[in-house]
């Protein structure tokens, strides 16, 4: 009986729905299209074969990510590369010593608030913007970066991110808030204010 339910849950179609999320997760870790694709394939195959082991206690996606993590770990074990980018795994300590005081007065008003950005959409088409974006993202404290990436890059839902990171819901909100404040400020300083001054100097 239970096996039947598990198998239903585990139809190819159901599994395939999780492919994009799993792929982004793998890509961010492995930084290689083919390897990421392989890891996802192996994960889906393993999940399909082990369908009867899935007890439905965890969400299907958490279970799949668990398998994917093993596949990625296998890859690193096999790999000769020694430097592993400590992206989504291995980081847990530090809650990011910074807090909103960097951005707000004790009354909760902006220190120096967000100014308007000139044509952000255009930035998305520029190669240089992505270098700045990545720098800003890497400048986040590790735990904060992990939460932000799981939510915004991988595309997990808030409760899934909490499960992955062990954060409470309240801490999750605070972390996302801080991440957005910091990313926003970094992009403003390094890109939007900068490109403005470059344009102005061209006119001069």
């Amino acid at each position: 009986m239970t096996k039947n339910i598990a198998e239903q849950r585990m139809s190819e179609q159901v599994l395939a729905e999780h492919r994009p999320v799993l792929f982004r997760y793998a890509l961010l870790q492995l930084r290689d299209h083919e390897l990421a694709d392989d890891a996802v394939q192996e994960t889906l195959l393993a999940a399909w074969q082990a369908a009867s082991n899935f007890e439905g206690k965890a969400s299907l996606r958490s279970w799949l990510i668990g398998i994917l993590k093993h596949k990625i770990a296998d890859h690193w074990r096999r790999s000769v590369r020694e430097v592993v980018t400590p992206e989504l795994d291995q980081i847990d300590a530090d809650n990011g010593a910074v807090d909103e005081d960097d951005f707000f007065t004790s009354n909760g008003e902006w220190h120096s608030g967000p100014s308007a950005w000139n044509d952000p959409e255009a930035a998305l088409k520029q190669q240089e913007f992505w270098i700045i974006y990545e720098t800003c993202q890497n400048n986040l404290p590790p735990q904060m970066a992990k939460v932000f990436m799981l939510r915004e890059l991988v595309g997990l839902k808030a409760d899934e991110v909490c499960r992955e990171t062990g954060l409470s819901t309240a801490n999750y909100w605070v972390t996302m808030h801080r991440a957005r404040l910091r990313l926003r400020e970094c992009l403003e300083i390094r890109w939007f204010n900068n490109s403005k001054s470059i344009k102005e100097s061209h006119h001069a």
Partner: peptide, 17 residues
């Protein structure tokens, strides 16, 4: 501005992958 820019950052983050 924070609101518009945070929406933009979400979009950029998604595009980044």
């Amino acid at each position: 501005n924070f609101q518009t820019q945070s929406t933009f950052i979400s979009k950029a983050a998604h595009r980044f992958t």
